[in-house]
Amino acid sequence: MSIRKRIAAARRAVLAATLTVVSSLASAQTFTFTAIPDQDESKLTERFGRIADYLSKQVGAEVKYIPVKSYPAAVAAFRNNQVQLAWFGGLTGVQARNLVPGSEAIAQGAEDTAFKTYFIAHASTGLKNSAEFPAAIAGKSFTFGSKGSTSGRLMPEFFIRDHFKKAPDAIFSRVGFSGDHSRTMTLVESGAYDVGVLNYTVWDDAVKQGSVDTSKVSVIWTSPTYPDYQWTIRGDVDAAWGKGFKQKVQQALLDMKDPQLLQAFPRTGFVPAQNSDYAPIEKTAIELGIMDEIM
């Protein structure tokens, strides 16, 4: 009996989760969003399911969350109108908005107005924290995070090139892409890579929780600030859900105050944003050759 109930529940859960993608297409009226948080990707569906409930209540329409893991897949879903709203990293947002004309950045995390990258190094390198750019990292082995990450790739590469006037390949003995901020931390902590770069909130959280051994790995430089994560919404949502819908969504995001909800991102709150806030990111991406110049 209870087993049968559980199976029925499982079936429903599966239909909801696995086929959300499909069903959300079928009923165009389900407002769908996705989010790739900068840390702790576990239990995405549970954590962001609560956000969906919240948004649903605030905007008066059915809202669904679908989990997407990779940046390219997330942008593809956004482009394909499978999701209309997405929590993107700085660079990914710029790329997505380029691919979907009319889409807009409507809110960013309170922390994202002045985001930072930490450069971290293994203790054996002898590198110490300094306010100056750590030029001594030249010749070491080095790892970025994910290729499409703003704080783990784009901005640190910009600061590195800015200082050395050379490409990372020409500076370091080896350049890896760990794929993730936590991985970067683990790899530098174990000494597999000498130096790495990561999102400052991930590091600060790890230190707070004691999950990183600061005698083995430490921050050697904090980058200047730049804008990062933001909510991007498609331009055609008003047409589908009625005039003013975009504003309603924006307001709902700005009004999100429940720490439990905000913990999913994790941010302390959201503030308004607009496309032009990300012009520096776009400029940097073009300079680095990660994006082609828009003609």
Binding site: T18, S42, L44, P67, S70, A73, A74, D180, S182
Partner: peptide, 24 residues
């Protein structure tokens, strides 16, 4: 294929590996 977001075992496996949740 779960590594890029299809809802297979790899979806959760990739997360668990990235986060260092090795039991999971």
């Amino acid at each position: 294929l779960g590594f890029i977001g299809l809802p297979t075992v790899g979806f959760h496996l990739e997360t668990a590996l990235k986060q260092g949740q090795y039991s999971e």
